[in-house]
């Protein structure tokens, strides 16, 4: 199983790199010209994201460095305990929408402390894959087209995160 997954991951990108130009070639597309034409947009898009990403990462960075996470964890753990969520995994739930790297760090720490095959280890692994880094995605994607009024995007993203995290807790409790 693990080998099979590894093989798929290893081949996915080389396969796409070959398949799409090959299809274009058969369809008589000038593949080299089309490629450079598309690639031109890469620079502008990347640069346009900068202000949005700076704003978002600074506020998340300040929040993380302050130690406010511990306060929030002790504030939330009586509530999260009601749905069978161990207090140790609360920082994981808070971190997941804020920072992908941060959440990976918390998960790695929980796995090494409690064991990969413990309930906490498994639960945090499922939480990691259950949702995305909402704040990062919104900053980058809206930033790329200079959207400032995001309407219901953040509430919807956070509700989806909450559902993903709660489902992760329930599934881990049921299956393991």
């Amino acid at each position: 199983m693990l080998n099979f997954i590894q093989i798929i991951s290893d081949f996915a990108i080389p396969f796409i790199l070959l398949a799409i130009p090959a299809y274009g070639f058969i369809k008589k597309v000038k593949v080299y010209e089309a490629f450079t034409d598309g690639a031109k947009e890469g620079f502008q898009t990347a640069v346009r994201i900068i202000p949005y990403l700076v704003a978002m990462l600074v506020s998340i960075g300040v929040f993380r460095a302050s130690g406010a996470m511990d306060g929030l964890t002790s504030l939330l753990s009586p509530v999260t305990g009601l749905i069978g969520m161990p207090a140790e995994t609360v920082p994981m739930a808070i971190m997941r929408p804020l920072s992908g790297g941060g959440a990976t760090g918390v998960m790695t720490d929980l796995i090494t402390t409690h064991g990969a095959d413990s309930l906490i280890g498994r639960m945090s692994s499922i939480m990691m894959g259950s949702t995305e880094t909402t704040f990062y995605v919104l900053a980058v994607y809206f930033g790329a087209v200079s959207i400032k009024k995001t309407r219901h995007a953040l509430p919807a993203g956070l509700i989806a995160d909450a559902v993903g995290i709660i489902t992760a807790v329930i599934i881990a409790r049921l299956m393991f």
Binding site: I16, L17, I20, P21, Y23, G24, K27, V29, V31, A34, F35, T36, D37, G38, A39, K40, E41, G42, T45
Partner: peptide, 9 residues
């Protein structure tokens, strides 16, 4: 974006 352009064309 280059690969995408080929896929598009």
């Amino acid at each position: 974006l280059g690969i995408m352009k080929i896929a598009e064309k």
